[in-house]
């Protein structure tokens, strides 16, 4: 990981008021919901949403603005660039989700309506980490593929199509369509229900292995795509 690249990514987020506004809404609404629903903690899936907001255009936008050409003019490995961006998105999404979750939990405890134990909170945060780093890996791969914010557009369209396929497959009782929809959704939003996994005997490894496969494959694809990219240093890159 490259520390300067990590810090530069954070500065890039801070320079975008629209992104910060959307991020604040996505982070604070679950806390409000938690207070209104008598201390129920936010769902771990919220970490995916934060990763999607932070990760939109994480590589593609750097290509469009010409930042990537400047960064890669230095002797930085392209894999380091991809992995640092992935770590930045995943860890920032997890940190924001963690802060909001702990705040919601403390608010619930203070008002005497908290029913979750510290163990529940720790398990939720572990699950949120899988959500955040999973979604970040998918977005990094999509972002290496297209310029600008095309990555998030592909993700949204893919999710809608997968939901449609799943629903149509359910209604028409077409198992293949239902399966394809479900697999696409699981690919676009990798996650593991840790409570279910840890509560089962023997511990089922397939879910964790599927998550690990999706993440490693997405990162490898992103690095290969970036390695193959020929960047023009003479133009603005737009």
């Amino acid at each position: 990981m490259s520390r300067p690249l990590f810090l530069a990514t954070i500065r890039w987020w801070l320079a975008s008021p629209i992104r910060l506004g959307v991020l604040a809404a996505a982070a604070l609404l679950p806390v409000l919901g938690s207070v209104l629903s008598q201390g129920r903690l936010p769902s771990a899936g919220g970490a995916s949403e934060l990763a999607l907001i932070l990760g939109a255009g994480i590589i593609g936008q750097s290509v469009s603005t010409g930042t990537l050409q400047l960064v890669l003019a230095r002797p930085i490995r392209r894999s380091t660039f991809v992995l640092t961006r992935w770590l930045a998105v995943g860890s920032a999404a997890l940190a924001i989700f963690g802060a909001c979750t702990v705040a919601a939990w403390l608010l619930g405890s203070a008002s005497g309506m908290e029913t979750q134990t510290p163990g529940d909170v720790a398990l939720l945060l572990a699950e949120a980490a899988l959500h955040a780093f999973g979604a970040a890996a998918v977005l990094v791969a999509l972002s290496a593929l297209v310029r600008g914010y095309g990555d998030i557009a592909i993700w949204i369209v893919g999710t809608i199509l997968a939901l449609l396929a799943s629903e149509v497959g359910q209604v028409k009782d077409v198992a293949t369509l239902r399966w394809a929809g479900r697999q696409t959704l699981e690919f676009l939003r990798p996650s593991v229900d840790l409570r279910q996994v840890l509560g089962a005997r023997p511990v089922p490894l397939s879910g964790l292995a599927a998550w690990a496969f999706t993440v490693t494959l997405c990162l490898a694809v992103a690095i290969v795509l970036l390695n193959r990219k020929e960047l023009s240093y003479a133009s603005s890159g737009a």
Binding site: P75, R77, S79, F213, L217, L219, A220
Partner: peptide, 16 residues
């Protein structure tokens, strides 16, 4: 600076 991601591909194969 364009080394192929051999370790990641091996990890992906192992996970698969």
């Amino acid at each position: 600076t364009r080394r192929p991601p051999v370790a990641l591909l091996a990890a992906a194969a192992a996970a698969l």
